[in-house]
């Protein structure tokens, strides 16, 4: 398979994640979309890694996954505390930044 098909797929998955972040109001789902975007990036990494014939890209995938795991842990903790305070995880209702 050509490299570019993987990249196209990666771009489409990424965009799907972006759209999800933009239109969903449930913080958990927004989080999942972020994971989706990270995965799309991972796909591109691995595809290019194969194309270049070296393992560096996959090492980066490893790092991305580590960071993603940390991020999910923190993010979910934040969501839990927000829910405890406000009884909601609707991002539209968490608007204390309003000017």
């Amino acid at each position: 398979m050509e490299l570019q098909y993987y990249l196209i797929l990666s771009a489409l998955l990424f965009t799907t994640g972006v759209i999800g972040v933009l239109i969903r109001r449930n913080a958990i789902i927004i989080f999942m979309c972020i994971e989706l975007m990270l995965n799309a990036a991972n796909l591109a990494f691995v595809a290019i890694s194969r194309s270049l014939g070296e393992a560096t890209g996959q090492v980066f995938v490893f790092f991305v996954m580590t960071v993603a795991a940390a991020e999910v842990a923190i993010g979910l903790a934040i969501i839990v505390s927000v829910f405890k305070h406000r009884q909601t995880i609707n991002v539209d209702e968490v608007n204390s930044l309003k000017g």
């Binding site: 990249l7 990666s10 771009a11 489409l12 965009t15 799907t16």
Partner: peptide, 22 residues
């Protein structure tokens, strides 16, 4: 508007994948 933006972003991504990286 968000969906339109997403589609535009997708177009740009595909363009990068097909044209630029070549």
């Amino acid at each position: 508007f968000a969906i339109v933006l997403g589609i535009l972003l997708a177009v740009e991504g595909v363009y990068i994948a097909t044209n630029v990286l070549n």
